[in-house]
């Protein structure tokens, strides 16, 4: 119906003012306008998430340092802060560029070119999604971060990790138990009930090496001791400068939840983008848009969506990985 609107029989009007009716004041088809306004509203959805992220982050005394959290890459690369996510960002930028090329070929009504660049864009989107899958797997499986647990945080004060002997000397009671089929040793403060929140562990790093005696300053980041053998996230014990024995605190829960939620929501957009790109690539190959004679407008609208996904990533990248 929309094709035979007022526009057709008043098309002869050559009035200077675009707002006088019978033509688009923005010289854009209704489909393109609708895509723009949908993207505007989607931007507000993401804004809702990112502003919530900001509010929660501002309400927390500490927040994990990104270049400490995101420092692994596939194939066993360790201590390479932000390198993998830079790769992911580049994948998305390149897929955006190939999308621009697809739109240009569409404008030229070059079917083969449009399909070629669309396929490259699909490959880019799929690569990004795979990278994200690896990143999530690493964070969940190896680092122990989940929507309810955040093993990354900052120290509020300076101190030194304690060894088992020092803990026993301080009057802590040593408990040896079996957890998930492996031995676990922890310490209870005097008169404390044996519940998970009261358990103090000797701090060990990722490889299981004891970190007793190591000193740290306020603001240093830390990762809660993670025991591969018994799958426990353990509060390491340390002595503050004023001589008090304390245990490490988990980082703000909200970090993990927000990270998985917002990157997941963005990933969902990438995923649906890949699905739509595939459909459109098939349609282009089938010659559907040639029949419509509108310069492959569907490819252009899809391009807007795909660039929007890239645009959102700019801000996700900013708030989660850079700041």
């Amino acid at each position: 119906m929309a094709t035979d609107t007022a526009l057709d029989h008043h098309a002869d009007v050559q009035d200077g003012n675009l707002w006088d009716g019978a033509k688009s004041p923005f010289q854009a088809s209704y489909g393109k306008l609708m895509m723009w306004y949908f993207l505007l509203s989607d931007a507000f959805t993401f804004a809702g998430f990112l502003i919530s992220y900001g509010a929660l982050r501002f309400s927390m005394p500490t927040w994990p340092v990104p270049d400490f959290v995101f420092k692994s890459a596939p194939f066993g690369v360790e201590n390479a802060p932000l390198i993998f996510v830079t790769f992911m960002t580049f994948v998305l930028i390149i897929s955006s560029v190939t999308m621009v090329r697809a739109v240009q070929e569409g404008h030229r009504e070059n079917k083969g070119g449009a399909v070629f660049w669309l396929l490259l864009t699909i490959i880019g989107g799929a690569t990004f999604l795979s990278s994200q899958a690896w990143e999530w797997t690493n964070l969940i499986g190896k680092e122990g971060m989940s929507v309810t647990t955040n093993p990354f945080s900052n120290f509020n004060e300076s101190g030194k990790y304690l060894s088992a002997e020092e803990l026993e000397k301080a009057g802590f009671q040593k408990v040896e138990t079996e957890a998930h089929g492996a031995a676990a040793t922890y310490f209870l403060r005097p008169r404390a009930a044996d519940v998970p929140e009261n358990r103090y562990f000797v701090k060990a790093d990722h490889h299981g090496h004891s970190m007793a005696g190591e000193e740290f300053a306020a603001g240093n980041h830390f990762l809660i001791t993670y025991n591969h053998a018994n799958h426990l996230y353990e509060h390491g014990a340390y002595m503050a400068e004023d001589g008090h024995v304390k245990k490490e605190e988990f980082g703000p829960q909200a970090f993990g939840a927000l990270f998985f939620f917002i990157t997941g929501f963005h990933g969902f957009h990438v995923f649906s983008g890949v699905v739509f790109l595939t459909i459109i690539a098939i349609n282009v190959a089938g010659g559907l848009y040639v029949k419509r004679r509108n310069g492959y407008e569907m490819v252009e609208k899809m391009g807007l969506y795909w660039h929007f996904v890239d645009l959102v990533w700019v801000f996700v990248f900013l708030v989660f990985y850079l700041l």
Binding site: A55, L56, S59
Partner: peptide
């Protein structure tokens, strides 16, 4: 919205 939400977040903290 950003000003108000962030101000709020700070005040919760």
């Amino acid at each position: 919205a950003i000003i108000a939400f962030f101000q709020e977040g700070t005040s919760w903290g």
